[in-house]
């Protein structure tokens, strides 16, 4: 389990803390979505999870290992895969397979096992057969899946993704979402930071950050029933969620909240 407890982060020279007493857990096989306005501290929290950043106060532990423990650093980082927003900037290798191999190479995994891990990871993200493809010839969605494969090759128990779809088109988003869903089902714990509540709809839990504090923690649908509350924290609700909430506010009885237009139409006809 990733266990963030009362974490506080103050950047040097900053007036207010970027994170102010945040507690959060993530278990294997669980998916947690995180939303929040720009500057609310999402990336900061993500970086705490794999010891890219250490808390100024409070603790962060991964499967019982404190991230401040220098001895456990590589163990922590291989257990927590990290994927960033920009698909271009996190690819190290000159061809796909060499990029995927980068993590386990650093861990000293021997050659035979390396090959197996690389091929498995590429397969898991739907890039089987693209071993020799040069990264700049991949679509953005493929690049982002390659980045996920690079994390998977370290055989992590958790994946932390910091707005992985923010720079992708619709197709790319769908590809990444599908991969994340499969991984969750296979037992990987997923912390998915996003700007879109629609992407968070499948999550087991939803967390909303605002000014370094957690202001909502619950089911995604719980938040969709509260459009004003969501708006206050810079969360864009899917159109249909806004519609159903407004219908309910006007006294029209629809089962709340719904994401697709079809079920809304059906409910209205009844």
């Amino acid at each position: 389990m990733i266990d963030v407890r009362d974490a506080m982060v103050v950047y040097p020279g900053a007036e207010r803390p970027a994170l102010d007493g945040v507690s959060l857990t993530l278990s294997p096989g669980e998916s947690v979505a995180m939303l929040g306005a720009n500057g609310s501290g999402k990336s900061t929290l993500a970086r705490l999870c794999n010891a890219l950043l250490l808390p100024s106060a409070g603790t962060v532990s991964v499967d019982g290992m404190d991230t401040r423990d220098a001895e456990a650093l590589w163990d922590v980082r291989s257990r927590v895969g990290f994927v960033q927003q920009n698909p271009e900037n996190q690819i190290v290798g000159t061809v796909a397979e060499e990029d995927v191999a980068f993590g386990p190479e650093n861990l000293g995994v021997p050659a035979g096992e390396l090959r197996r891990r690389v091929d498995d990871a590429l397969e898991a993200v739907g890039l089987a057969g693209m071993q020799r493809r040069e990264p700049h010839l991949l679509s953005d969605g493929q690049k982002q899946r390659l980045a996920i494969a690079g994390a998977l090759a370290m055989r992590p128990a958790y994946l932390v993704l910091d707005e992985p779809t923010a720079m992708l088109d619709g197709t790319g988003r769908a590809e990444v979402a599908a991969v994340l869903k499969t991984l969750r089902d296979e037992g990987v714990g997923i912390l998915h930071i996003t700007h879109q509540l629609a992407e968070a709809a499948d999550a087991d839990r939803l967390v909303v950050l605002s000014e370094g504090r957690i202001v909502y923690e619950g089911t995604p649908f719980g938040l969709m029933g509260e459009p004003e509350y969501a708006g206050r924290y810079g969360v864009d609700l899917p159109h249909m969620a806004v519609l159903t909430a407004e219908l309910r506010a006007k006294g029209i009885d629809v089962p709340a909240p719904m994401l697709d237009a079809e079920s809304v139409v059906e409910a209205l006809w009844r």
Partner: peptide, 10 residues
Amino acid sequence: DLALAMESRC
């Protein structure tokens, strides 16, 4: 970004 990605991958 690249430095973060490389550190994250040990």
